[in-house]
C-alpha cells in the first residue's frame, strides 16, 4: 500500500512541475496510460493474497482517479494560458479589406424592372413581351387614336416605313392581347419605347415604360385606385396614397393622371407618375367584348421615374450611357 501512496505523490509532484500541456500529456502517458506506472501497480496484485486484492485494487483505482482529476485541472489551467498566447500570436487586422467573390451587377433599370415584375406579377397579371418595332395600327389605331388628332402631338414617332414605327408607348401591347386572349384577363409588360424628342436631363428619345391592364366583370375606377395603391406601397414603401386627376388619353375613359404621395419619400408632396383609366369602350367593342358585361382598367408609367425619385437621380441620360461610376452605385 505504501508503494501506491509513494507513486501517487511522485506523480502528483511531477504533474505540478509541468509547465506545458504537452508535458502534462507525456506525464499522463507515463503514469496513467495503459502501460503507465500507476496501471503497472496492478500487475503486482498477483503477489497478494486473495483477501488483500480487493482493497489494493480499490486503492490503486482511487489513486488513479485522484491523479486523473488533478491532471485535468492542471491541463485546463495551462491550456487557458497557452491559448491566450496563441491568440495573441494569431492576431489579425480586422480592418483589412475582405475578399469578395466576384458577382455581376444588375443594371439599376433592371433592378427596378425586376421589382415591378415581382409586384405586378404577384397581383395576378401575366407578363407579356411585345415588339419594339411595332405596327402603326397597334401603336395608334387599336388604341382609339382618331386620325389627325392633336393627341398624337405628344407622341413624336420614329418611322421605319408607313406601317412600322418604333413604339411610342407600351400600351401598344393592348391590341395584341385583345386579339388573342378573351376576358377575363390581367396582363402587363415592361419595355422600351421611343419618341423623337430632343435629349436633355429629363427627356430622351429612348426610355422605358410599364403598361398594366385587365378586363373582368364590374371593374371600376375603385379597383384601379386600389391596385395602384398596392403597387405604390410596394414600390415606394410606407403608406403611399394615390390621387386621381382628370386627364385625356384616347385609350381610356374616364382618363386620369395618377399621383402618389408618401411622407417618407416626397414629404407629402404629390408626385405624378403616369396615366390611367378605364379601357375605352370603343376599344373593347373593336375586339367584340360586351361592354355591358365587361369593363377594364389600364395604367402606365415611366420606369426611369422610379429610380430617379428613389435615388434623387437628376439626369435621365445616365441610364443608357453605362458609365460604371454611375452603375456601381446601385447594387
Amino acid at each position: 500500500m505504501d508503494e501506491i501512496a509513494e507513486l501517487e505523490e511522485q506523480a502528483a509532484k511531477a504533474f505540478r512541475g509541468a509547465t506545458t500541456t504537452a508535458e502534462l500529456r507525456e506525464l499522463e502517458i507515463r503514469f496513467l496510460g495503459k502501460s503507465g506506472l500507476v496501471t503497472g501497480l496492478m500487475r503486482g496484485i498477483g503477489k497478494l493474497s486473495a483477501d488483500e486484492r480487493p482493497a489494493f485494487g480499490a486503492a490503486v483505482n482511487e489513486a488513479k482517479g485522484r491523479l486523473q482529476s488533478l491532471l485535468d485541472q492542471l491541463t485546463s489551467a495551462l491550456r487557458g494560458a497557452e491559448l491566450a498566447v496563441q491568440f495573441e500570436n494569431e492576431k489579425i487586422d480586422l480592418t483589412l479589406p475582405g475578399r469578395r467573390p466576384r458577382a455581376g451587377r444588375t443594371h439599376v433599370l433592371q433592378q427596378t424592372i425586376d421589382k415591378i415584375k415581382r409586384v405586378i406579377g404577384s397581383m395576378g397579371f401575366v407578363y407579356y413581351e411585345s415588339p419594339e418595332l411595332e405596327l402603326f395600327k397597334y401603336n395608334f389605331d387599336a388604341l382609339n387614336y382618331p386620325p389627325d388628332h392633336p393627341a398624337m402631338d405628344a407622341q413624336d414617332t420614329f418611322y421605319v416605313s408607313d406601317d412600322l414605327v418604333l413604339r411610342t408607348q407600351c400600351t401598344a401591347l393592348q391590341g395584341r392581347v385583345f386579339e388573342t386572349v378573351a376576358p377575363p384577363f390581367r396582363a402587363f409588360t415592361v419595355g422600351r419605347t421611343f419618341r423623337n424628342e430632343a435629349v436633355d436631363r429629363t427627356h430622351s428619345h429612348t426610355f422605358h415604360q410599364i403598361d398594366v391592364f385587365m378586363v373582368d366583370e364590374g371593374i371600376s375606377m375603385a379597383h384601379l385606385k386600389g391596385t395602384l395603391r398596392v403597387f405604390a406601397r410596394e414600390m415606394f414603401g410606407g403608406d403611399a396614397k394615390v390621387r386621381f386627376r382628370p386627364d385625356f388619353f384616347p385609350f381610356v375613359e374616364p382618363g386620369v393622371d395618377y399621383a402618389i404621395s408618401t411622407p417618407k419619400l416626397f414629404g407629402g408632396r404629390w408626385v405624378e407618375l403616369g396615366g390611367a383609366g378605364l379601357i375605352h369602350p370603343n376599344i373593347l367593342e373593336r375586339y367584340g367584348i360586351d361592354t355591358e358585361r365587361y369593363s377594364g382598367f389600364a395604367f402606365g408609367l415611366g420606369v426611369e421615374r422610379i429610380p430617379m425619385m428613389a435615388h434623387g437621380i437628376d439626369d435621365l441620360r445616365h441610364f443608357l450611357e453605362n458609365d460604371v461610376r454611375f452603375l456601381e452605385q446601385f447594387r
Partner: peptide, 18 residues
C-alpha cells in the same frame, strides 16, 4: 375622384408574372 374608394379586383385571378 377623391371620393372614389380603393378596392382590389376579385374574380378569376390567374397566376401572374413571366
Amino acid at each position: 375622384y377623391e371620393k372614389i374608394p380603393e378596392f382590389l379586383p376579385i374574380g378569376s385571378t390567374p397566376v401572374g408574372g413571366p
